[in-house]
């Protein structure tokens, strides 16, 4: 099997040796990325922080024994974070609650000055309503910017299956956000 080029290889090696500067750099490089993944998968910022913290802890444990060349460290870290996310998603489904999930207010359009923030809230809400696997596909490809091959491998599906998930997810998002897209079209004139 051909050796896989990994831009994190040297950094992981130094982290494994306890290099304090490398540890700092790893946190700066990976923590925002993993937090963003967890936040978009789970919607809950507290749970997202828990997942990010646990994923990084596992990264510290793995670094001293990381064998370069077989996989990218970033891909491995994504796998760890996704597994932690799915653990939480499964736990949610097992918990019966009388309190309905918090709904985003779909009321009248806000003032222009708040449009970007409100749009972001609407987009995140629409993402959270997607089936888990469609959301995962969109988060990995669009936000985490993994290649289709990397994302398909992480999700343990073929590229064709990945594209099907992406297409269905994007179609559902277009429906959810149709009014915002119409506003954008009107602005374009």
């Amino acid at each position: 099997m051909a050796r896989i080029a990994d831009p994190d290889e040297e950094l992981v090696r130094r982290v494994g040796q306890g290099d304090a500067a490398a540890i700092q750099a790893m946190v700066a490089r990976k923590l925002p990325r993993i937090l963003a993944l967890a936040k978009r998968m789970l919607s809950d910022p507290i749970e997202a922080e828990d997942v990010a913290q646990e994923a990084m802890l596992r990264a510290w444990r793995q670094a001293p024994k990381w064998a370069p060349g077989k996989a990218k460290f970033d891909t491995w870290l994504h796998r760890v974070a996704l597994n932690l996310c799915y653990d939480r998603l499964r736990r949610r489904r097992e918990v019966v609650t009388d309190t309905p999930p918090e709904r985003i207010d779909d009321g009248p359009a806000p003032d222009q000055g708040l449009l970007s923030a409100e749009t972001g809230v609407r987009v995140d809400a629409a993402l959270s309503r997607l089936p888990d696997r469609q959301r995962e596909a969109i988060v990995l490809c669009h936000y985490q910017e993994l290649t289709n091959i990397e994302a398909a491998a992480l999700m343990e599906v073929s590229v064709e299956a990945l594209e099907s998930l992406l297409s269905r997810g994007r179609r559902a998002l277009r429906v959810s956000l149709a009014d915002l897209a119409d506003d954008r079209g009107a602005d374009r004139g």
Partner: peptide
């Protein structure tokens, strides 16, 4: 249009508290 909207999703900020916990770990 959808690509544009997707970028409105905010990137969560890493709090100092989270960063410190991760470094300590």
């Amino acid at each position: 249009d959808l690509d544009y909207l997707l970028w409105a999703s905010p990137q969560p900020a890493v709090s100092m508290a989270l960063r410190d916990r991760v470094l300590a770990s």
